[in-house]
Amino acid sequence: MTSMGGQRRLGRRLILLIGAIYFAFPFVAMARFAFQNVQVFDLGRSTLFENWSLTSVTSAFGEDYFWDALRLSIQLALGTALLTLFVLVPTAVWVHLRIPRARAVVEFLTVLPYVIPAIALVAGIVVIKPHARWFLNSDLSLIPFYAVLALPFTYRSIDAGLRAIDLRTLTEASRSLGAGWNVTLRRVLIPSLKSALISSTFLTVAVVLGEYTIADVLLKRTLPAFMAEYRQSDPRGGYALAVLSLLATTLLFAGIGVATRPRGGRNPRTDEPSPSTEETPS
């Protein structure tokens, strides 16, 4: 039994290793192209540790437009995360409490932005553009579109959070203690959904940092738009930024793992041990 278990563990590790190589290989290749001052046709095993430098990325950082693009992307990420929080959380709570039978329909609707390509959304934006210039002229007009694009990920994250708590009982307990909907949402539900909301926020940021199509059509100079443009004039710099962007996204996902890790059995504020008197916790 032990040897079978060991084999299974080994098998799992092997699959993980193959997966890691599959993803790491192109990433390392891109990083070498971006950060090594070596001719492309010389990039081989023998030059693996030669002439690594950050000049490609520092020259990209030297562009004024880069910092504007980064600032806009951060603003868009925060705005999208806030819009998601203020609109999607109450909506998801309402669906769970009031129309639980409609959950499947809502789930289907929220997955549509993933199924329908962004270019289709762009076609729609082009149609309404002449009638909504007052809105679309603002750089922050991308926020609602990004909120829609992130919907397949954010809704699922919040939905999973809501399924993990006893929503109805917590809501009713709060209301029976004199709290209106606003206080219930703010003081009971949102803190109880902390992990789900952190995941949702990180996923939103990842979507915003990767979106190019809509920003390009609406002529917004976001970070992905800058990267695409910069790559044409300085391919190595463009790819260096892409590597950094990928790293940032990876760190965000690692952050989800850390931030949503369940708390241990010890009281984090008082550091008291778990109860040992009377009944044992079930």
Binding site: E172, A173, R175, K194
Partner: peptide
């Protein structure tokens, strides 16, 4: 419900997990 001044104890555990 929130203006009725009723105290309620539920069948399932209803303590707010984010509060002590």
């Amino acid at each position: 419900a929130h203006r009725r001044n009723m105290g309620m104890v539920f069948q399932s555990y209803s303590l707010f997990p984010n509060m002590n």
